[in-house]
Amino acid sequence: MTFRKLFVIGAAVAALGVAGAAVAQTAAQKSMIDQAKAQGVVGEQADGYLGFRSSSSDAALRAAVDATNSGRRAAYARSAADAGTSADVAGARMFESQLLPRIQSGQWYRNPQGQWVQR
């Protein structure tokens, strides 16, 4: 199997895993995270996880981000096991193929160099 086919299969499996993890996330948590993204408090990161761009003392938001990242961590681990790679690679691939294209204008993301960039 070529690397390209392996990459495509891995990305597809990761997408399904993250979709499953998203189902576990409540609508309230998703709404809270979406609002925090719009405000620039939370953003996607090149490692495939959500991160705080600025400090937040909102315990509910922190819990929502933690729950989302926990679901993603499990999905990346499953995807990595299926593709024969690491969870770190699976998360980075998910960011590039699925998460980065969905970032809306005005929202922030952390690039692979660790810098926060506004789209």
Rank of each mutant, 00 (worst) to 15 (best):
A59T: 14
Y49N: 06
A19V: 00
A67S: 08
D66G: 05
S56C: 08
A22D: 12
G40Q: 09
G48C: 12
G91V: 04
R93K: 00
G10Y: 09
D82M: 11
D47M: 03
W108L: 09
G43T: 00
R73N: 11
A87I: 03
A67W: 05
G43S: 07
K37V: 00
A12S: 09
S31R: 12
E96R: 06
A87C: 07
R102L: 13
G40V: 06
A22T: 08
Y109H: 06
A28K: 08
I103G: 03
F52T: 13
N69I: 04
K30Y: 06
N69T: 08
F95D: 03
G106Q: 07
D66F: 05
A80D: 00
I33M: 13
A28Q: 10
A11R: 10
P101S: 04
G17Y: 02
Q98N: 11
A80C: 12
S55C: 06
A83E: 01
Q29I: 05
G91Q: 00
E96S: 06
S31Q: 15
D34E: 14
L61H: 07
Q25Y: 01
A60I: 06
R73T: 08
N69E: 13
I33R: 07
K5H: 04
S105N: 13
E96P: 00
Q25M: 11
S55A: 14
S56H: 10
A28N: 00
V41G: 07
A19F: 10
A87F: 01
A80M: 03
S70F: 10
S97L: 00
I9Y: 13
T26A: 06
G48R: 13
L16Y: 11
R110I: 04
R102N: 15
A92E: 06
T26M: 01
A19M: 08
I9D: 13
A90I: 03
S56L: 05
A77H: 02
R62V: 12
T85Q: 02
S79P: 13
A90Q: 02
L50D: 15
K37E: 14
